[in-house]
Simulated assay, not measured.
Amino acid sequence: MHNNNQKNKLLTTVYLLPTVVILLVFMIIPIIYTFYLSFFDWNLIAPNKNFVGLENYITIFTDAVNRKVLMNTFFYIILLLILNFIVPYFIAIIVQFFIGKMKGPYKVIFFIPSIFSLVVGAMLFSWIMNPVSGPLADVMKMIGLSIPNWTNSGGMAIVIVCLITNWKVFGYNFVLLLTGLGAIPKNLIDAAKIDRIPKWRVIWNIVLPLNKSIALYVWQIVKLNRTPCIKKLQRL
């Protein structure tokens, strides 16, 4: 028995070793080395590196351009979190536990934009939101209003970029969350109904904890979807 345990531990170590080596070489060591380089003034070419201590960090948080980049990125991430995670989660809960019927059409309607390219979505939104000749501008002109040139407005441009990204991935996140909610054992929900537990407590104490794995997966998707637009935000 003891020999079998040792053999299992050895096999586990052998199986995990390639992954550990890859993580060390391509992730952990580069991160540590990058942190080390952050204390130097170096152009990556010169043979000598000048130690500057915390000067690089001070510059990041005191420079006006860097502060604007950080604020734009933070604002974008918060909006993306709300639009791509919280809103589809909220709608999925309503469809699953308050509507109950016709779930199929909801999935189709919300998922249709996911089959289109993000480039198509960007072109579509650019046309709709065109402040001069877009259809939304024409409608606003009829009621005596106008659309600001959002491409030159930092805050509004971030909102539009978030809407374009949300239009593309909202349906995918919604379907995943709705599927996860549908996999929760129905007997638990029925038992809570018999005990006359309020629906909000059922959702908070039973549904959300049991659906945590799917929620974390969607959270990771939202985090990955934010990266393609970061460089755009830096120019706003």
Rank of each mutant, 00 (worst) to 15 (best):
N3V: 14
N4G: 15
N4T: 15
N5I: 14
Q6T: 15
N8D: 12
T19V: 13
I22N: 01
V25Q: 01
I28M: 05
I32N: 09
L37P: 01
F40D: 00
F40N: 05
D41G: 00
N43S: 06
N48A: 07
F51T: 00
V52M: 02
G53W: 05
N56S: 08
T59G: 00
I60S: 05
V65E: 02
V69Y: 04
L70K: 02
L70Y: 03
N72Y: 02
F74L: 15
I77N: 11
I77W: 15
I77C: 12
I78E: 08
L81A: 10
L83N: 05
N84S: 12
A92H: 08
I94K: 02
I99F: 09
K101D: 07
M102L: 10
M102K: 10
K103Q: 08
P105S: 04
P105T: 05
Y106H: 09
K107R: 15
V108G: 01
I109Q: 05
F110G: 09
F110K: 07
F111T: 04
I112A: 10
P113H: 15
I115L: 08
S117Y: 02
V120I: 15
L124H: 01
F125I: 13
F125S: 07
F125Y: 15
S133A: 12
P135H: 00
A137C: 01
M142W: 11
M142H: 07
I143M: 03
L145F: 03
L145P: 00
I147Y: 00
P148W: 06
N149S: 01
G154V: 11
G155L: 10
V161L: 08
C162A: 13
T165K: 12
W167S: 11
F174K: 03
L178W: 10
T179P: 01
A183S: 14
P185F: 10
N187Y: 15
A191Y: 09
K193R: 15
K193M: 10
I194D: 11
P198W: 14
W200V: 02
R201H: 12
N205A: 15
L208Y: 07
L210F: 14
S213Y: 13
V218N: 11
I221L: 13
I221S: 04
I221D: 04
V222S: 03
L224K: 13
C229F: 15
I230A: 13
K231M: 12
L236C: 11
